[in-house]
Design a protein around this nucleic acid. Structure first.
Lengths: 212, 212
DNA sequence: GTCTATACCCAGATAGAC
DNA sequence: GTCTATCTGGGTATAGAC
């Protein structure tokens, strides 16, 4: 998870294939953008998180904006892939009677995307920049894709799909708020988080404790 | 709603009580922060939106950060006041049998907060900055207050309160995405927005069309 | 492909006049 | 109380060496 992952595993900064570096920077950027938002994040923070130089980050993607779009598109890819595989996974459960097993299964897998640190937050940050002329359209298209998947592929009605997304946005918001920081201190927060993440609170807390 | 509101109503930039100016700047800041987020907004953009000079905006609140906190606190005040008055308003309806009339009524009034341009978005932007050492705590406290109101004053169970907030966050997200921009062009978007705002789509569209 | 050095611009904040 | 002028820092992007 940190910096070394070369097969031959040399010193940190050396001998790593270029596309691996690219992927590494993309992951680092996802974390940084998720935490501070597009404007709040600096290419320098991304660079430091990835263990490369700031100008190199810019060089690789052309601009900060292009980097953010890349992060956003990667996040959307992973989101849709997760939806797809959750759908497959739930197909047998659905056959054996359970009406909204599909919904439950997708929800579970959605929550597990939290492990991909910053991914859901970067998405959410993008959603809040709908007024931006270049980020906005990509973000809107992403939301549409998600909704259409739920409606057309997962067979939800408009009401179910809407509610599903609402629960997702609530989860994203609670994570963005760092609400888990108050889990032990505030009984109210504990109650709310237990409600929002029936089975995944331990995951959330473990991610919180793994923070820098 | 725009710039003039002095009783004696002189030329725009003149003779306005200081606290009126302050309120005006606060409203302008709410709009700008809502649109671009805390980091994306500039004190200069706020100043121009309010028709005052940039240094004056900083002078008035001490710093950009303090201004944002002021915006956030005003938004939370208005939110809670809206909740309170919706609760009162719904008390008779609740007496006459309708089980979740309270919930419906609060939801309606929540959606009407859209008219206070930028208010829900500024809140949402704050929610996405939970990692910020000064904004985070205020934002978390705001979310807690809202949840506790729904649970303790409006008499919702944890599940209802959570779902209510989820629908709220979904609404905020759709507004942040500027999803209404595609209302006519994309049937899918129309369907989603009609679902999200049963009765308030016209309001949303009118606000969209009133945009700069 | 990756770094160091640096140019350049923009934004927040300050000084001080009115 | 409000403005103009300006300082200063920090952040993106470029140039160019290795």
């Amino acid at each position: 998870m940190s910096s070394v992952s070369t097969p031959e595993s040399e010193t940190v900064g050396t001998r790593m294939r270029a596309d691996e570096r690219r992927a590494l920077v993309l992951e680092a950027a996802t974390r940084v953008f998720g935490e501070r938002g597009y404007h709040g994040a600096t290419t320098d923070a991304v660079a430091r998180a990835a263990g490369v130089s700031q100008p190199y980050v810019v060089r690789m993607f052309g601009s900060k904006e292009a980097l953010f779009i890349a992060v956003l598109e990667r996040a959307l890819e992973r989101l849709m892939a997760t939806f797809e595989s959750a759908l497959v996974e739930s197909e047998d459960a659905a056959a054996s009677g359970d009406a909204d097993a599909v919904s439950h299964c997708i929800a579970q897998n959605y929550a597990e995307l939290l492990s991909d640190r910053g991914l859901l937050l970067s998405l959410m940050q993008a959603f809040m920049l709908g007024a931006d002329p270049v980020i906005g359209p990509v973000a809107r298209a992403g939301m549409r894709r998600a909704y259409e998947f739920l409606r057309d592929r997962a067979g939800m009605g408009p009401d179910e799909a809407h509610e599903f997304l609402a629960l997702g946005m609530m989860l994203n918001t609670l994570v963005g708020l760092r609400m888990a920081d108050d889990y032990e201190r505030e009984p109210t927060v504990r109650e709310l988080l237990d409600e929002a993440l029936p089975t995944k609170v331990p995951l959330l807390l473990s991610l919180r404790d793994a923070e820098s």
